[in-house]
Amino acid sequence: MQVFKVQGMSCGHCVRAVTQAVQALDPAAEVQVDLASGEVRVSSRLADGQVLEAIREEGYAAEVA
């Protein structure tokens, strides 16, 4: 399970955007978003850098937690 700290998420739209961005690269990815902590947990075959890039392309600042 990969864990990322993501800034700027505040609503259901943010959850969908991040989830869809990751799943566009790996449709089988499991994505869990915790708005309160700003953490995104991803279970995927993707490398950390690929997940970070997908999240950042949606306009969020992200880093490996």
Rank of each mutant, 00 (worst) to 15 (best):
L35D: 05
V40F: 11
A62P: 07
Q2T: 09
E58Y: 10
A24Q: 06
V15L: 07
L35P: 00
M1A: 08
Q50W: 09
M9R: 04
V42L: 10
L46W: 10
R56I: 06
R56T: 12
G49Y: 01
I55M: 05
V6M: 01
V42D: 01
Q7A: 13
C11Y: 08
C11E: 07
R16G: 03
S44A: 10
Q23H: 05
F4V: 00
V15Y: 10
M1P: 03
D26P: 01
G59T: 04
Q20V: 01
Q20C: 02
V40D: 05
E63C: 05
I55C: 03
Q7C: 08
A47E: 15
C11P: 00
V64F: 09
A62H: 11
Q23K: 15
Q20Y: 06
A62S: 12
A17D: 10
T19F: 02
T19S: 09
S37R: 12
Q50R: 14
V15M: 08
A24R: 14
R16F: 10
G8H: 12
Q32N: 13
S43N: 13
V42S: 04
E53M: 04
A61L: 10
C11T: 04
D34T: 05
A28G: 09
E39L: 14
C11S: 04
A65W: 11
A61D: 12
R41Q: 13
G12L: 06
R16Q: 14
G38T: 01
V40P: 09
E39D: 12
V33F: 05
F4S: 00
L25H: 02
A61T: 09
A36T: 14
P27I: 00
V42W: 02
Q2E: 13
C11M: 10
A47H: 12
V40T: 12
Q23G: 00
E30G: 11
A65H: 13
Q20S: 14
S37M: 09
V3S: 13
V18Y: 07
A17C: 04
Y60W: 12
S43G: 10
V51N: 01
H13I: 02
A24I: 01
V40G: 09
T19Q: 12
I55W: 00
L52W: 04
Q50T: 03
V15D: 06
A65I: 06
Q32R: 15
F4R: 00
G38S: 10
Q32L: 14
E39K: 15
R45W: 08
D26T: 00
S44M: 03
L25N: 02
L52V: 07
E58A: 15
V33N: 01
V51Y: 02
V31D: 05
V42Y: 03
T19E: 08
